[in-house]
């Protein structure tokens, strides 16, 4: 019985304290580009992981590359740019993903493999490659 009480105290008290603290401060989330995310904010907060997982399977296995729930697009919009103009990792402390995930103590492993910064350089290169493929420009 004593052990149970102790367990209760250990589990509940810090949680309650954390909740109160949370109400006071909460995570500070940097604002993304544009005015609106791909779905309503409440929906995105609650279900972004489900949409991302679904999209991931669609993209990897079936080659579906719609942008709406693409992780690449998340990074594109939500990664901040530092004072020196270089992009900051979206997973860095205080940045879009990390601020909330650190607060909720949920680990994300997306960025062990995925780029956490947007990369603008590929656009021009790929466009040219597409043109080559289309025969609009000849290969030298």
């Amino acid at each position: 019985m004593r052990a149970l009480v102790l367990l209760f105290v250990l589990l509940v008290v810090p949680a309650a304290a954390g909740a109160q603290e949370g109400r006071a401060s909460g995570p500070v989330i940097p604002k993304g580009k544009g005015t609106q995310c791909v779905a309503e904010t409440d929906y995105m907060r609650r279900f972004h992981m489900i949409e991302l997982t679904h999209q991931r399977d669609e993209t990897v296995h079936r080659g579906i590359r719609t942008e709406r729930y693409s992780l690449k697009e998340c990074v594109e919009c939500h990664a901040s740019v530092g004072t020196d103009g270089t992009p900051i990792s979206i997973n860095a402390p205080g940045q879009f993903c990390a601020s909330c995930h650190d607060y909720a103590a949920v680990t994300i492993d997306c960025f062990q493999c995925h780029a956490s910064k947007p990369d603008g350089s590929d656009q021009a290169g790929l466009a040219r490659s597409l043109a080559v493929a289309a025969g609009m420009e000849t290969v030298r």
Partner: peptide
């Protein structure tokens, strides 16, 4: 980005 590639369009 498309326009950057000289004289190229993507319709093809």
């Amino acid at each position: 980005g498309v326009v950057l590639a000289p004289g190229v369009t993507l319709y093809g």
